[in-house]
Simulated scan of single mutants.
Amino acid sequence: MARVSQEHLDARRRQILDGAARCFARDGFHGTSMQDVLKEVGLSAGAVYRYFSGKDDLIAAIAGEAVGGVREAFEQAARLSPPPAPDVLIGSVARTLFGGEADAARGLDRRAYAGLIVQVWSETLRSERLAKTLGEAYAGLRAAWAELVGVYRETGALAADVPDDDVARTLIATAQGFIAQLAMFGDAGPEFLERGLRGLMSMDLQKIS
């Protein structure tokens, strides 16, 4: 019997995840059955269960990819030297996550993918496994962003005596808010986020203090 290559195995796993993501984005986690996933990907139950034990396993895998995508997008932007200002940084992350090429690769448009991420967040209220996975990922993301905030402080760009972790949490919240707006209303884009942050950063606080 011919040995199946790792490339083939990876491609089949990708096929299943992408098909499941389309189902979940269209009908929700709880409105989608494993039969729906099998029909979407055009594979037998045995072929799918070789990779995933069930729907919860698929949800966990998609959740891990979504959070990993946010972190990877941030780290890619943060590798620039000197590091970009917050408006450019968050805009770059948004473009990496919701750019045209990324949308085409997933088979989902940007609003559908944002909605899938929001579903993942809400599912953590039900699933201890998912809550633990996302909690660990969030802690790692906070640490990475706090490190970048420390670089801002070292360069003198950040003068306020505010803990680095507080600033990191706020940057993450800004990205989360953008994703939620995109999922709910579909009219948000990285350019709005960049311009809005740039406007806030340009405020002369002495005039309102």
Rank of each mutant, 00 (worst) to 15 (best):
R111H: 08
Q119Y: 13
T133S: 10
L134P: 00
A159Q: 15
G99F: 03
S202L: 05
Y49E: 06
A94K: 00
G64F: 08
I62T: 04
I117L: 08
E128L: 14
V149E: 03
A160D: 15
A60F: 02
P163K: 08
Y51E: 10
D109L: 01
D166N: 15
T155S: 13
R3G: 11
S122A: 15
D36Y: 07
A143R: 12
A94Q: 03
T170D: 13
S53N: 14
K207N: 15
I16Q: 02
E154Q: 13
V167G: 00
A47G: 12
D57N: 05
A188V: 02
F178N: 00
V41M: 06
S202M: 05
V88R: 11
A73G: 04
G68D: 08
V48T: 13
R3V: 09
P84V: 03
L43A: 09
L116C: 03
A159C: 13
M34V: 09
D27A: 15
D87E: 05
L197D: 00
R26D: 04
V4S: 03
A20K: 02
V70C: 07
G64A: 10
E40A: 12
V151D: 07
A11C: 12
E75H: 10
T155F: 12
R14Y: 08
T133H: 15
V70Y: 02
Q15A: 06
I16H: 01
L125E: 15
A180V: 15
Q15S: 13
E136F: 09
M1A: 11
F74L: 08
A2G: 12
Y51N: 08
Q206W: 05
L134F: 06
T133M: 09
L43Y: 09
A188Q: 01
Y152R: 09
G31T: 07
A146P: 07
V41G: 03
V70K: 07
L193A: 00
A77K: 01
